[in-house]
Amino acid sequence: MKKNEVPQDKSHALAGETKTIYALDESGKVGATETSGWDVEDIVLDQALEELQRHAEDALVRAQAGKTSPLEFHMYKQRMDLPMLAQATGQFQWQVRRHFDPRRFAKLSAKKLNRYAEVLDLTVDVLKELPEKHE
């Protein structure tokens, strides 16, 4: 790729930041240059974010219907999934899955709640709550 062909698509994911990429100048030398992003990157990133969003919305609806606990919603909202959350909290997946049961979740010890809150970067109060709508 030549330096003047480096895409400058002003990626919204980069929010005004730039990335460095190596490209050819006219004399055939490879050197560092800046890019404001490439549409292809935005397409696949948006797709991944949408997938997490979809999971979060789905979990919110089920949580409001009392079919799952707020934990599942917050997990997806904070961009985690079950294997990640289990690993981050040092538990088996089936242990975390049990805490998706609203009744079990309501009885969780302060210690367990704190651990979830910490890895999800939330306060315990927020962790127990459900928002009206997922933005």
């Binding site: 292809v40 397409i43 696949v44 991944a48």
Partner: peptide
Amino acid sequence: ARLFLGQIVRMQEEIGT
């Protein structure tokens, strides 16, 4: 299938360099 392809591209272009 879409997510799998997207993942390949994300790993390729987005994560790291």
